[in-house]
């Protein structure tokens, strides 16, 4: 864990939350972004940083199961919450079906958007296992990918829906 901010964190601001099932207690000012909490305090770098204004979805995580841009959420807003990052959805070495679908269909190139994309798809399919094309577009419109032109991503989503049947 590389922590560049502890010295500025007042001792009283303890953030407690669960990340991928593990309880964490962190000394972070309440206004710290969840993105920093995850990447810098906890050291999980699968959650990516790109626009930091909630436009690209690279930093997407699940907060109590709901997709949230970690660059917009403040530490105090996730006090006590259950956070799931990309590192937390496989069971052991067994990939999550959405991860498998992305892998098999080649739903990525540089891979920088992939963690956020996978989590958005997972959240969608958890909610609606057989979504229409419109629902898919709606659910993924906050996840930008510059490499693929979304062709592989659409194929991966279709495959993930099949795998879930």
């Amino acid at each position: 864990m590389i922590d560049n901010r502890t010295e500025l964190a007042p001792a009283q601001s303890r953030l407690t939350l669960r990340v991928n099932g593990a309880a964490c207690e962190i000394a972070a000012p309440p206004s710290t972004r969840l993105l920093q909490v995850i990447r810098e305090f906890i050291g999980l770098t699968g959650t990516k940083r790109s626009c930091e204004i909630g436009r690209c979805g690279a930093c997407m995580v699940l907060v109590d199961g709901e997709p949230v841009n970690a660059c917009l959420a403040m530490a105090y807003q996730v006090q006590g919450a259950e956070i799931t990052t990309i590192e937390g959805i496989a069971s052991g070495t067994e990939l999550h079906p959405v991860q498998r679908a992305f892998l098999e269909e080649g739903g990525f190139q540089c891979g920088y958007c992939t963690p956020g994309m996978v989590l958005s798809v997972k959240a969608l399919l958890d909610r609606s296992p057989d979504p229409s094309d419109e629902e898919v577009e709606e659910a993924l419109s906050g996840n930008l990918c510059r490499c693929t032109g979304y062709g592989g991503i659409r194929r991966a989503v279709r495959r993930a829906i099949e795998l879930g049947r």
Binding site: T45, G46, T85, L95, Q99, L103, G106, G111, T114, P115
Partner: peptide, 15 residues
Amino acid sequence: IRPDGPGKVTGGLAY
């Protein structure tokens, strides 16, 4: 399956 794929879909690949 791309050799760099597993690290990309799991977030394990460190950029």
